[in-house]
């Protein structure tokens, strides 16, 4: 019952988000600001996390395949495919839900409780469109790039860590990450990341837009938003994997 109420209200909000903009030029300005604020500012954390995870995965694959019956190339292959199929798309989206999502909820929620949203409405501005559309477009736009950056630095992480720790040689690793490469995996994950981008921007925006109360409620809404965003990311991961990868 409650869930249906929220889903209904979520789609009503989306309808307003995609209403006709008052002045496209200003929306465009907002969009650039959001790409910078939500996207560019997330690059560092993506790079750092991906390097570590790539390195750790390489070590773990190397250990679990230390039996000589496994060809050494499997280590690089395993690292690469795990990054592409799951980590750099889904896991990264979960992490970004925590960073970008909570940022969006608290920003919009604060604007709600301090009457800044009412203020926009009074001026005759479609507040939902003005505040949320640039965020959704920005996040959907940057997510594929974050995915590519993450895969790249994850592979670098493995390349550096594996040989340094001494579990695999540079040549074996490099051979592995080129072995049995299906470009479709990348296409698949980019499609996923577009969906996840939409979820990571729109669900937290919904939670922020409908906050009632004060600062405390904004905090609670942020937490709720992140939890729900994560659930929907996983749900869509399951659906898309079933649909696109059979």
């Amino acid at each position: 019952m409650n869930l249906f109420f929220h889903i209904g209200r979520y789609f009503l909000l989306l309808k307003r988000v995609f209403g006709r903009p008052e002045k496209s030029r200003i929306y465009l300005k907002q969009l650039f600001k959001e790409v910078d604020n939500l996207g560019v500012n997330s690059v560092w954390i993506v790079v750092i996390i991906s390097i570590f995870i790539g390195g750790i995965m390489t070590i773990q694959f190397a250990y679990s395949m230390s039996n000589p019956i496994y060809p050494k190339t499997l280590v690089g292959l395993g690292t690469r495919d795990t990054l592409i199929l799951e980590f750099s798309s889904t896991m990264l989206a979960l992490i970004m839900a925590g960073k970008i999502g909570s940022n969006i909820t608290s920003e919009i929620g604060t604007m709600r409780v301090t009457e800044q949203i009412d203020s926009l409405e009074i001026m005759g501005i479609n507040s939902a469109g003005f505040l949320i559309l640039p965020k959704i477009v920005a996040v959907v736009f940057i997510f594929p790039f974050l995915f590519i950056i993450s895969v790249f630095f994850g592979l670098i992480g493995g390349l550096v860590t594996g040989p340094v720790v001494g579990v695999i040689s540079v040549t074996d690793y490099l051979k592995g990450i080129q072995f049995l490469f299906y470009p479709y995996y990348v296409t698949f994950s980019i499609i996923k990341s577009l969906f996840f981008g939409f979820i990571v921007a729109s669900i937290p925006a919904y939670f922020g837009y409908h906050v009632q109360g004060g600062a405390l409620e904004v905090g609670k809404a942020s937490t709720n938003a992140v939890v729900n965003t994560n659930i929907f990311i996983l749900l869509f991961d399951l659906i898309l994997t079933r649909l696109l990868l059979t």
Partner: peptide, 9 residues
Amino acid sequence: VFQGGALFD
């Protein structure tokens, strides 16, 4: 003019 001013932060 809103109670808290409601200026855009």
